[in-house]
Design a protein around this nucleic acid. Structure first.
Lengths: 206, 206
DNA sequence: AGCCGAACATACCGACGGTATGTGTTTTTC
DNA sequence: GAAAAACACATACCGTCGGTATGTTCGGCT
């Protein structure tokens, strides 16, 4: 039956997209370890030869999926932050957007649970820094330089906040309590607010 | 070669100990996925029959290892906290003890990286709550009830702090910067201090 | 002494990740 | 525009791994 003639480049893209999409779907639902390459290529109507033509290994396919998920989260965070003018409000909006984006079970299983275990913490950390965590560091740096929050090393603070939000997102998604979200965002807002000067009247800049 | 006659109960314990110890060693060094049961039983001078006589699966052996590691961390945290009288100092000491204990690469790979991925986040979370995280919740509850920190839901706050410390421990172990530890503990102390009433003069209890 | 069951030991299986090689189609080259 | 090179897969196969079914030894109890 007359199949549309596809250029090699186009065919390559479509195949790659199908494999990544199906990998993402299965990895998200059942976890990396419980998914076999056989069912990925079967559902994607491809073969293992196609998969290994595009990816070096199962972990390599997973890495591509992680990159895609991280990019989507980063985009949402960036959009939320750029909608504000005030640097402080950008931080708050970005954190809330991150929590909202990370409440997706797909994002959690792939990015927060399997990511560090499959790719190793160091590589996962580097990818995280390259996507969403970088915005957090930049926002904090701006706030320190403009004197809005207490002058301090931003790197450790960014790690603390990033870890707090990751864990909070995982907890929120499992928590049946509908007040969990408001309580968590309230607690996070309190922690963030404590960084500002006016909350620590005894601390003087410089 | 006169081997010492061992009672069945004793033999059972020794075998189990050897398998758990070797499993812990290998899981910690190379990660759960990269370790085969064959090399575990080989290094432990046992057989796969012995392993499956004591454990239901590879994940079951790993779960036992995780429980052991978590118990050791919890013991260190408890010891540090009980050495203090003041509830506030107990919280600080406990957090610092947790960071110190979690700086061990063994603890990190098993408890923080592979734990959630292998056992699933829910089960890992339940085990974490049963060991060290419970102390954090209790300490915060005490501080709220005695009016030392602002009255608020403790569960979300405990999750935020727990996640922050987990991530900080992983970051510290990889950070070459010797000032990382002091900077991180300083940042953590700042966040904790912000919970106290005297740091938020506009907030009134009740 | 003799039996029973616990504590292993051995042999084996299906599935999975990965690879080597074959095949058809597109693109380039002359 | 035909040959040929390059590409994008498809097929067949391999070694290893987690898990199981069955056999064997040895301490405990009567």
């Amino acid at each position: 039956m007359n199949r549309a003639p596809r250029s090699k480049a186009q065919q390559r893209l479509e195949t790659r997209r199908a494999l990544v999409a199906e990998g993402r779907r299965l990895f998200a639902r059942r976890g990396y370890g419980a998914v076999s390459l056989a069912e990925i290529v079967e559902n994607a109507e491809m073969t293992k030869g196609a998969l290994y033509h595009h990816f070096d290994s199962k972990a390599d396919l997973f890495r591509t999926v992680v990159e895609q998920v991280q990019q989507e989260v980063a985009d949402r965070v960036t959009a939320a932050a750029e909608a504000r003018e005030d640097p402080w409000e950008q931080l708050i909006a970005g954190c809330h957007a991150f929590l909202a984006a990370s409440s997706d079970p797909e994002v959690q299983q792939i990015m927060l649970i399997d990511g560090p275990a499959v790719l190793g913490w160091e590589e996962w950390r580097a990818m995280d820094e390259a996507s969403s965590a970088r915005h957090l560091t930049e926002a904090l740096t701006t706030l320190v330089e403009t004197g809005i929050i207490v002058r301090q090393p931003v790197a450790p603070l960014a790690r603390l906040l990033s870890g707090a939000m990751n864990e909070a997102a995982l907890w929120l998604a499992r928590s049946a309590d509908p007040a969990g979200l408001t309580d968590t965002t309230a607690a996070l807002s309190r922690l963030l607010a404590s960084l500002r000067h006016h909350d620590r009247p005894d601390a003087v800049p410089r």
